[in-house]
Write a protein that binds this DNA or RNA. Sequence first.
DNA 1: GTATGTGAATTTCTTCACAGCA
DNA 2: TGCTGTGAAGAAATTCACATAC
Lengths: 221, 221
Amino acid sequence: MPDTDSLLDSLASDAFKKVPQPTIERLSAYLQCVRGLRDEERATASSAEIARRTGINAAQLRKDLSYFGEFGTPGLGYDLRALERQLAHIMGLDEERDVLLIGAGNLGRALSSYTGFARRGFRIVAAFDLDAEKVGTPIGNIPVFHLQELSRRNAEFGAQVGLVAVPSNAAQEAVDALVAAGVKAILNFAPATIGVRPGITIRNVDLTSQMEILSFYLRHG
Amino acid sequence: MPDTDSLLDSLASDAFKKVPQPTIERLSAYLQCVRGLRDEERATASSAEIARRTGINAAQLRKDLSYFGEFGTPGLGYDLRALERQLAHIMGLDEERDVLLIGAGNLGRALSSYTGFARRGFRIVAAFDLDAEKVGTPIGNIPVFHLQELSRRNAEFGAQVGLVAVPSNAAQEAVDALVAAGVKAILNFAPATIGVRPGITIRNVDLTSQMEILSFYLRHG
DNA sequence: GTATGTGAATTTCTTCACAGCA
DNA sequence: TGCTGTGAAGAAATTCACATAC
């Protein structure tokens, strides 16, 4: 058995090309499940139990974890405290991350007051908007700057994560501004296909698209 | 070549078991792209052009469409007006759909004022909450009722789609209430794994999970 | 006995490559 | 010629099934 931590840390960008995309997207579900079990004061759980709770096949869970190391004990299962720590480490969640928000409209305001982010260590440190009316009045504790100030302000913050909550036609501009300011990972809520250069991660959360998919299943399925 | 419309309509639940899940999730992206091209007054486009704009492989697009019929003209491409209509029909978007919202907190309020839904024919007709303080005061035009009234009120509305924007620990209850009221498709924003009986479609939009996935790519990738 | 980790088998999805049509 | 629609090939992901460890 290889030393777990060194295996984990040796998995730099390079070796990670081998981890299936779907695996990465499931890690978060496992972590959520483990947190839930820990809240119930459980000390260990088998892959079968986590499978039951997440709806993900037990062999799938074991294989997913196997890309990152060996975390279980045959005959016993997984120590939940350790597994939570290891999953968090794998996902880069062992330190707080500052986040920039672009768009101080309805959605932007809702996102800034969403406590789920802060609870998981994502702290929105500043918002930016094109609308001069919105600039200057903080949302809660979060200052609102003009989009033009993005790069200058982020020289100070050094945030690597951005949220884009602007209308579709402004989304590419917002993303470009974030990337220019040094942001490396972006969650985009605008219903638009955005291009970014290699090395930048962008994920789209398109609510209308989700509704359309529901509609499909309503019509068929 | 089979008659397109009858093929489309013959694809009831049954034959649809053959359509890959990822195909269904891409349909919405195609539709969005086609709408964009139409906004630019374009009359036709090739699969290659749609591929370039969406980032989805051209053969993939053609195969995806092929599950539903033949929509293109060899040598020419796709008639965009027709394709938009057909995609909308496939996805069940040719009529308006009433939507119920559970949770009148920050996120719920943002969702109700999100114009993107209405623009695509999803109309939030009522909101429900457990908090007596929130009941009675409309959000914009949308009345807010107590969750207990859900079934009774939906006897009138007959909505088949629900949005769940409540804390995790209330999500299963909210979903159960929606299902009991006749809702068949649900978009859940709570970070929780929710069980529903067969025949009910539920999709999760877990923002924290999305952030964690970004964090993974920040650490590696 | 119980449950992990993992090669092998299977299933699913994507891409190729080309026949056939406009 | 240009582009679609689609079988066949290839790649990727999932699931099985079992040797191995506690």
